[in-house]
């Protein structure tokens, strides 16, 4: 009984940690609304500068958005409740 209870706590602790890390990572990546797979980076050459122009190019880069962040949080919550449900079922069975 005591073992199951502490196990449940660990599951919740891991879940909250994962959710917290996901949110921190989302904020770190710029707190974008939508997930991006490409970002613009400066590619201005010396000749471009002499010509008075700028140049930017798309490069492949994953930027986590709020959409995927919410998705990941929901997935973590589902897995947490599923794990707890299985633990509860196991406790009842034993």
């Amino acid at each position: 009984m005591q073992f199951m209870s502490s196990y449940k706590k660990i599951v919740f602790l891991i879940s909250f940690s994962l959710i917290f890390l996901t949110i921190i990572f989302w904020i770190y990546q710029g707190a974008e609304i939508f997930t991006k797979t490409k970002v613009l980076v400066d590619n201005t050459s010396e000749l471009d500068k002499e010509l008075g122009i700028k140049n930017e190019i798309w490069v492949d880069k994953f930027v986590l958005g709020l959409d995927y962040t919410i998705g990941i949080i929901i997935l973590i919550m589902i897995l947490t409740f599923l794990t707890n449900y299985l633990l509860k079922t196991k406790r009842k069975g034993s």
């Binding site: 000749l47 471009d48 002499e50 010509l51 008075g52 122009i53 700028k54």
Partner: peptide, 24 residues
């Protein structure tokens, strides 16, 4: 707009032949 004229040189040839007109 900003318009810049560069006469053809070894440097400009890296981009294209002839005189160049940069427009921003």
């Amino acid at each position: 707009a900003t318009i810049t004229y560069l006469v053809e040189s070894e440097q400009t040839k890296q981009r294209a032949p002839g005189d160049l007109l940069g427009v921003q």
